[in-house]
Design a protein around this nucleic acid. Structure first.
Length: 584
RNA sequence: GGCCCGGUAGUUCAGUUGGUUAGAACGCUAGCCUGUCACGCUAGAGGUCGAGGGUUCGAGUCCCUUCCGGGUCGCCA
């Protein structure tokens, strides 16, 4: 193929098929660069040697599909193009067939296209001709292949689960599919195959995996699509360590086979609590420092009411030392940092620049000398450092400083884009508080097992119960997550009750699962990786659309097919559906 | 639902305090050209300034509404 020919093929007869990248017409001599998915190569048409063929080449335009027969020749030394992988050779054409003509494309097909994304998405089939997107999708294919090979070698069976299922409460909004046969009833597309894979454990498929589409009707982000792909798996007779070790093997294999990188083993571990207190995030980017420091004890009796009150109300005061930024950040830049934390509901950002022999800070006058020097001590402050403080409820302090840390890391150039930092975050809380509904909800999902040593607190203090749940985090992205499940019927019922389901409700919603658990359920657990995100990180793109062949835009629409769209009244009628127009 | 950013030839963009006929580069079309590879040279075509309304003697430029897209908060067990 085009990109695979080298000087070693000198003299060979070749037949090439591909698209015209460019035509350079020098009069009696025409050069065409032909492109296929392997690369590009130069074809030469010379009117001296074959006027008829040359005439035919005159009509060739960009993106025409050609079949060219010819002889591969080494170029003369002065004609070699060092910028081109096949630049040492070219094909002297002897025959040309135009297999398909092309209109002038709406944008130029090239690597690193600067064409507008809307335009590219409307003509995605053209966008996908570009080498960078082709590389991404080919790498995606290889990751999927490694997954199937690796899990197969480790005894996993790939089993498909239904796409048309039932809607379950909790979690994301469902995509619904109306039933024609059952007027007024709906299927839901799966948010994940969670329940089915647990049932497969009950069935005795002790190791299951599947590469599968999941659907969540929530707002999109740079790393979130409404339909996305999971590498989903579940194992019987395991505890946390078993799941972690099998999947560590998978991730190492993917990195080895796609990028040639040996990831260190074992991967680092952080408990949820550590991750939050040190990085302000349950998916910390550990490629750089700027860790959080708690100074609550120093300032709890401070004259600065903002600090003292936050602590009195059960919150904390935490600090990031942005090394060296004190000298370089303008007032305006510091204000911009304050805007960052305000996004996450922090009321403000206090700051302190350490200078030779003193500090410059709007809060200095509220702090005693002892307090100031204790803070500087704890943060190993030196002249030129910028200390940034947030005082609030822990949740807000962590969230705002965690995000501020990322902004600072980027701004101070502390992030090495060529490294991969991977780690497991473990011991997540089992529950979190839903303030709106004033109840406990499962942080992971309602089938997650509590840690054995915390079961005793289920009734007395649900908030302190830790779960056998784990996430795998790569460069600050949640790559995957999972848990050991509850396989005890009584415990499962208790769990439902704690999140506010009556026995009847639980039975109605998950009756089939509870019923199944009556018949001999092995201890089991699993994990799911976000394939799109994994590929996104491997290809170093920052946008999930670049690793999906036909992605949707922020409004969940497909600009190429124009989905979603209205349907015939007849179709609606068959489905017993009437639409209403919402008024303001 | 909130906040921020963007929309001007096919494409990427420029367009001053509101002022004559809205420009450039690339692409496209035609002609010339035998070693180009971002080929070169000459000529030409190409515009609903996202849409609608308003202010004004005059709007790409100011105001309002709206559409499309991006980022983000909420949301995403």
């Amino acid at each position: 193929m085009c990109g695979e020919l080298t000087a070693a093929d000198d003299g060979k007869d070749v037949v090439l098929m591909g698209w015209v990248q460019r035509r350079r017409d020098l009069g009696a001599l025409i050069f065409v660069t032909l492109r296929d998915r392997t690369g590009i190569i130069q074809i030469v048409f010379n009117s001296d040697t074959d006027p008829e063929l040359h005439d035919k080449a005159l009509g060739v335009r960009s993106e025409y599909v050609l079949a060219v027969k010819g002889t591969l020749k080494r170029r003369s030394p002065d004609a070699v193009n060092k910028n081109m992988p096949t630049g040492e050779v070219e094909v002297i054409a002897s025959e040309l067939r135009i297999l398909g003509k092309s209109e002038t494309p709406p944008f130029h097909i090239e690597e690193n296209s600067d064409a507008n994304e809307v335009l590219r998405l409307k003509h995605r089939y053209l966008d996908l001709r570009r080498p960078d997107l082709q590389r991404n999708l080919i790498l995606r294919h290889r990751v999927a292949k490694v997954a199937r090979d690796y899990y197969d070698e480790n005894g996993f069976i790939e089993i498909e689960t239904p796409v048309l299922g039932r809607s379950t409460p909790e979690g994301a909004r469902d995509y619904l599919v109306p039933s024609r046969v059952h007027p007024g009833k709906f299927y839901a597309l799966p948010q994940s195959p969670q329940l089915f894979k647990q049932l497969l454990m009950v069935s005795g498929f002790d190791r299951y995996m599947q590469i599968t589409k999941c659907f969540r009707d929530e707002d999109l982000r740079a790393d979130r699509q409404p339909e996305f792909t999971q590498i989903d798996l579940e194992m019987s007779f395991v505890d946390v360590e078993d799941v972690i070790s099998v999947n560590e093997g998978f991730v190492r294999r993917v990195f080895k086979e796609t990028l040639g990188i040996d990831l260190p083993t074992p991967f680092k571990r952080l408990t949820y609590n550590e991750a939050m207190t040190r990085f302000g995030s349950d998916k910390p980017d550990t490629r750089f420092g700027l860790e959080l420091t708690d100074v609550s004890d120093i300032v709890k009796t401070s004259g600065f009411k903002v600090f003292a009150d936050a602590i009195a109300n059960g919150g904390s005061v935490r600090t990031i030392n942005a090394k060296t930024a004190g000298g370089s950040f303008s007032r305006k830049e510091i204000d911009a940092l304050a805007d960052v934390v305000k996004t996450y509901k922090a009321k403000g950002l206090a700051w302190m620049v350490i200078e030779e022999g003193g500090v410059r800070s709007p809060i200095a006058k509220f702090l005693s000398e002892e307090e100031t020097s204790a803070i500087i001590n704890r943060l190993n402050g030196e002249a030129g450092d910028l200390l940034l403080f947030v005082a609030d409820k822990d949740e807000i302090v962590f969230d705002s400083l965690g995000h501020l840390r990322l902004v600072l890391g980027e701004k101070l150039g502390l992030i090495d884009k060529n490294t991969y930092e991977i780690l497991w975050v473990t011991e997540f809380p089992l529950f979190e508080r839903d303030e709106e509904e004033n109840r406990w909800v499962a942080k992971h999902h309602p089938f997650t097992s509590p840690m054995d040593e915390d079961i005793e607190y289920l009734d007395s203090n649900p908030g302190r119960v830790r779960a056998k749940a784990y996430d795998i985090v790569l460069n600050g992205y949640e790559l995957g997550g999972g848990s050991i499940r509850i396989h005890d019927q009584e415990l499962q019922n208790k769990m439902f009750n704690l999140i506010g389901f009556s026995d009847e409700e639980a039975k109605e919603r998950f009756g089939f699962l509870l019923e199944a658990f009556k018949y001999g359920t092995p201890p089991h657990g699993g994990l799911a990786f976000g394939l799109d995100r994994l590929v996104m990180l491997l290809t170093k793109t920052d946008n999930i659309r670049d690793v999906i062949a036909f992605p949707k835009v922020q409004t969940a629409a497909d600009l190429m097919t124009n989905a979603p769209d209205v349907v015939d009244a007849k179709q609606l009628e068959e489905l017993s559906i009437e639409t209403v127009t919402k008024s303001e």
